[in-house]
Simulated assay, not measured.
Amino acid sequence: MGYRIVDPDDVEVPDGRPCEYRSLTEAGDLDEMAVNLFRAEPGEQVPLAYHYHEQQEEAFFVLSGTLFVETPERTYEVPEGHLFTVDPESPQRAHNPEDADERVELLAVGAPPAPDDAVAYDPGEDD
């Protein structure tokens, strides 16, 4: 058996990200999923550019604020306390719009953990 408590504030925030990003995967000693905490101020993107994953399923649980997720078909507004899920090969861009009134904070879970699975997507190109 194994148990751990992780304080996200003890996890280092890497440089070069479009918003505050804390990877909880390694700190939690997780092997079968990736878990990340994001805090995005108005105008910031979560976490990458428009992209999709070839294998990974993703789930975003909004802890506070409203998350906006742009897809080829529409933009979803995900309110606090709600879960948004993304199937593999489904392009999306999660962000907090510039005209938002507050920061958005969310927990992102992906499985299987696939650090090199993200593929850039250009919504202006035909597949």
Results as ranks from 00 to 15, higher is better:
Gly2Met: 12
Tyr3Cys: 10
Ile5Trp: 06
Ile5Gly: 03
Ile5Ser: 08
Asp7Trp: 03
Asp10Ser: 11
Glu12Asn: 01
Glu12Val: 04
Glu12Cys: 00
Pro14His: 09
Pro14Ala: 11
Asp15Met: 08
Arg17Tyr: 05
Pro18Glu: 00
Pro18Cys: 03
Glu20Phe: 03
Glu20Lys: 09
Glu20Arg: 11
Arg22Ala: 13
Arg22Gln: 13
Leu24Met: 00
Glu26Leu: 14
Ala27Ser: 08
Leu30Pro: 02
Asp31Gly: 09
Glu32Pro: 00
Ala34Met: 13
Phe38Ala: 00
Arg39Ile: 08
Ala40Asp: 01
Pro42Ile: 08
Gly43Glu: 00
Glu44Gly: 00
Ala49Asp: 13
Ala49Trp: 11
Tyr50Ile: 02
His51Val: 13
Tyr52Gln: 13
Glu54Leu: 05
Gln55Leu: 03
Gln56Asn: 02
Gln56Ala: 09
Glu57Pro: 00
Glu58Tyr: 02
Ala59Tyr: 06
Phe60Asp: 05
Phe60Gln: 06
Phe61Gly: 04
Phe61Trp: 10
Val62Arg: 08
Leu63Gly: 01
Ser64Phe: 05
Gly65Asp: 01
Gly65Val: 00
Leu67Cys: 14
Phe68Gln: 15
Phe68Cys: 15
Val69Lys: 13
Val69Phe: 11
Val69Pro: 09
Glu70Cys: 07
Pro72Asp: 02
Pro72Gln: 04
Glu73Trp: 08
Arg74Leu: 06
Arg74Met: 06
Arg74Lys: 11
Glu77Tyr: 07
Val78Thr: 02
Pro79Val: 05
Pro79Ala: 07
His82Arg: 12
His82Cys: 07
His82Gln: 10
His82Val: 06
Phe84Arg: 15
Thr85Ser: 10
Asp87Met: 07
Pro88Asn: 11
Pro91Phe: 04
Pro91His: 05
Gln92Gly: 10
Arg93His: 15
Arg93Met: 12
His95Asn: 06
His95Phe: 13
His95Arg: 11
Pro97Leu: 01
Pro97Asp: 01
Asp99His: 08
Asp99Asn: 09
Asp99Gly: 03
Asp99Thr: 07
Asp101Pro: 05
Asp101Tyr: 04
Glu102Pro: 06
Arg103Gly: 02
Val104Ala: 14
Val104Ile: 12
Ala108Met: 14
Val109Ser: 09
Val109His: 02
Gly110Met: 13
Gly110Cys: 13
Ala111Gln: 04
Pro113Gly: 02
Ala114Ser: 12
Ala114Thr: 11
Pro115Ser: 15
Ala120Lys: 09
Ala120Gln: 10
Tyr121Ala: 13
Pro123Gly: 05
Gly124Asn: 10
Glu125Ile: 05
Glu125Gln: 10
Glu125Cys: 01
Asp126Ala: 12
Asp126Thr: 11
Asp127Trp: 15
Asp127Gly: 14
Asp127Ser: 14
